[in-house]
Design a protein around this nucleic acid. Structure first.
Length: 485
RNA sequence: GGCUCCUUGGUCAAGUGGUUAAGACUCCGCCCUCUCACGGCGGCUACAGGGGUUCGAAUCCCCUAGGAGUCACCA
């Protein structure tokens, strides 16, 4: 193995859906590895059996594959540092925890939940920091052995130094340093024999040769404790890259628990995965130049830890929508139609409507695919509309002259043999010229009559073409009829 | 509350002692135009506040305010 190789990991716990913040962390880890020609590892942290959610692992696999965050090692594909699921590594942590006990960096603790709760309650009441009081660290060897022999349940706690301070260099936040005295003697190994995150992540990151740890800034304050562990083992401390959370608004993180959209929700709404990846890459990271559109390859090439910002970023769906619109417009007509098709279902049932033509109209007019239904609802059925729709100041139209316009347009349309867009256009423009009017005087009333709406994708000519001759004539007649009343 | 951090327009952000303080989204206006959208052009809006240091501070230091994270046998 190349000892200089950059190795990063994404280590989610399978407790629910993949939310945007998680995905972004995974993205950054992937980008850091790939921009350095390194390896990206997926590790599932399922040491908390109580929070395990069935199917959550599959969501993780699916999302990563979908977005192109392809891992080089992981539970599903293996690798030389497996297993990559913490619960399958359970046997290995105990040995390390015991090593720490031997070297004096950890100790057995037999305190039960009641005592700990009581302790915490008293400390809270006294307005004193809540931390373990170290009672069991004072146990003699004999006392410990006796309890062990008696089968008293125990945990192993990390023994923190009482003096001095621990500091480290974070790649984005700079130097972070804390007084050792305030560090709590955290549980390393739980009574069920499984490690806590605090312990497992250190052991696993080391055993898996992780060189750069990218994770949320919520771990910033506990990182010194992890470093003490690395030091106790005599292991090399990895580089840390902590990233600030993605926020819903100024005060709240984006979270699935609060009903905020997950990756899959955005896909359902008709956002393109490329746009989502592109957008979240820019949420909390900037390339340093003015580019805004990035393919995954571009991101790999441009990514640099220096561009990661310290402050939290608020997720702005408007900007995502804009970016998504950019991606939609770049699609080939075929591809767009393929993606749009599901959104016509149940909205346009008339088999005479050529959906490909509808797609042509829609492609420059939607930011996300879910914008489609409301834009095309008039194709199947002409909505009820008010005659006032015929009034348009700029077009200089009103119900009276619109009635005249429709009456003029009707025979012209009826006279078109070959119902093509060009023919419809040319015929109506010829009429406009004959009557010496502005285009809008004829075309606006036609558009209103065939659609019954104030805004439509495309103009009267396009809509008439898609609706077909019979339906167009019928709708013009309907317009004439209701304007004549 | 203790500790660790954060703070450039409404939002994302560039910026590392000297700039008219970029750019993008949003919003507004104009152009294009048969509506809408696309596209083009233009505009509004920012260095949280107060002290220093310096010839000079968004950039360095201190204080204040606001915000976040963390203080579990969760991760």
């Amino acid at each position: 193995m190349n000892t200089n190789e950059v190795r990063t990991r994404f280590a989610p716990s399978p407790t629910g859906y993949m939310h945007i913040g998680n995905l972004r962390t995974a993205l950054y880890a992937y980008l850091l590895a790939k921009s350095n020609g390194g390896k990206f590892i997926l590790r599932i942290e399922d040491t908390d059996q109580e929070r395990y959610v069935e199917g959550a692992v599959d969501v993780i696999y699916r999302t990563m594959k979908d977005t192109g965050l392809i891992h080089d090692e992981g539970p599903d594909i293996g690798g030389e540092f497996g297993p990559y699921i913490q619960s399958e590594r359970r046997g290995l942590y105990k040995e390390y925890a015991e090593k720490l006990v031997e070297s004096g960096h950890a100790y057995y603790c037999f305190c039960d939940k009641e005592r700990l709760e009581d302790l915490r309650a008293r400390q809270t009441a006294m307005k004193v920091p809540t931390k373990y009081d170290g009672l069991c660290s004072k146990l003699s060897k004999e006392e410990i052995q006796a309890k062990l022999d008696a089968g008293v349940p125990y945990v192993i706690r990390q023994k923190m130094p009482k003096t001095g301070k621990t500091s480290f260099q974070d790649e984005v936040f700079g130097e972070i340093s804390v007084e050792n005295a305030i560090l709590d003697d955290n549980v390393l190994l739980k009574a069920d024999g499984l490690p806590t995150y605090n312990f497992a992540n250190v052991i696993d990151d080391h055993l898996m040769n992780i060189t750069h740890i990218i994770r949320g800034s919520e771990y910033l304050s506990s990182t010194p404790k992890y470093n003490l562990l690395y030091e106790a083992f005599g292991w090399e401390i990895p580089k840390y890259i902590h990233v600030s959370p993605v926020m819903k608004d100024a005060n709240n993180k984006l979270s699935k628990r609060h009903g905020d959209a997950s990756y899959e929700d955005f896909i359902e709404k008709g956002y393109l995965k490329e746009a989502i990846v592109n957008y979240i890459a820019l949420l909390g990271w900037a390339p340093g130049d003015e580019r805004e559109k990035f393919t995954m390859e571009d991101l790999i090439e441009a990514f640099d830890v220096k561009g990661i910002s310290k402050s939290p970023a608020i997720f702005d769906e408007k900007k995502l929508a804009w970016l998504n619109g950019e991606y939609i417009r770049e699609l080939s007509a075929e591809k767009f139609h393929e993606l749009a098709a599901p959104f016509y279902e149940g909205v346009i049932k008339n088999p005479d409507i050529d959906l490909k033509l509808v797609s042509e109209l829609l492609q420059p007019r939607c930011e996300k695919l879910s914008d489609i239904p409301e834009q095309v609802d008039f194709f199947d059925n002409l909505p009820e509309y008010d005659n006032e729709l015929y009034t348009h100041k700029k077009m200089k139209t009103n119900p009276e002259n619109s009635l005249e316009a429709l009456k003029e347009a009707l025979p012209v349309l009826e006279g078109i043999e070959d119902w093509t867009k060009e023919n419809i256009h040319d015929a109506l423009i010829a009429l406009v010229e004959k009557l010496e009017l502005k285009n809008g005087r004829i075309l606006w009333p036609v558009r209103v009559a065939v659609s019954g709406k104030a805004f439509t994708p495309g103009g009267g000519v396009e809509l008439a073409h898609i609706l077909g001759k019979n339906e167009t004539i019928a709708r013009i007649n309907k317009g004439i009829e209701q304007l004549s009343k």
